[in-house]
Amino acid sequence: MSDTLALVLRLLAVFVVFLVFPLVIGQTEHKVMAHMQGRLGPMYAGGFHGWAQLVADGVKFAQKEDVVPNGADRRIFQLAPAVALLPYLLVMVAVPVGPHNAVGQALDAGVFFVLAVMGVGVLGSLMAGWASANKFSLLGGLRTAAQLLAYELPMLLAAASVAMAAGTLSLPGILDAFHWWWVPWQLIGGVVFFTAGLAELQRPPFDMPVADSEIIFGAYTEYTGLRFALFLLAEYAGIVVLSALTAVLFLGGWHGPFGADGLGWLWTLVKTVALCFVVIWLRVTYPRLREDQLQKLAWTVLIPLALAQIALTGVIKVVIS
């Protein structure tokens, strides 16, 4: 009974994190982006520096009419936001935050689980793009699919490199085997993983599938109200998940220069937040890549780099064992 209770409590904690963190990241993005552009960002909602802006946005979204276009494929159109959002919740269950089993649910093949489930999230965008009965949505869906196919491979290869280094596929297992010199060793893989993850989340500079100057908002063009908000929430949950995964796989998760046991979760948190900041930073700094540049980057830069990282990992692994 207490086992069940503990599991329920863990899942509840994951759910709370899932609801709170994306909002925090969203608010951070508002403010960081504003200041990087010499603006102030939201200042009024909630009184102090607009901290409640996203709450206000949520209220606004909830009040809007839920419109389904006449020609749309009704059920798929309505189902798509859930398909886009839920995988990230599932992934968060498997991300370890601290030592000694501080994880929603430890999984034997955790790396595969997180990558597989993250890939499913893109299915939501595809469903939305197809079911909207809108040419811009369809184009957005096409670009989403093309981007996923191109960037899933380097992401997998980079993650495989870490799994090779650790000799396990389990996320807590990888962290148990971690040493500080893994960071320079797996640096290329880390960069490839992070970049490919950004592309999979369709974050700028890889936001061709939602390029507003060309195709309005891609697959989400026809969405309003809460369903649209769910897509946005999925994007920010994706940022949290990607940052947490990069922190766990390549930056040593709960390991830090000091406070190994008690403050492990804090290290994970700090690394995750720092990576989230980088995601926002990249969005502000770089212009959008063109579709052919996107594909070229994946196939001619990231995949060779990831393969080189795997070779390097293999060589060093053999040398030190």
Partner: peptide, 16 residues
């Protein structure tokens, strides 16, 4: 990973 994440996406891509 392979079937849901990639094969079906490829399928949908083709259908689109």
């Amino acid at each position: 990973l392979i079937y849901v994440g990639s094969v079906v996406v490829l399928l949908l891509f083709g259908l689109m």
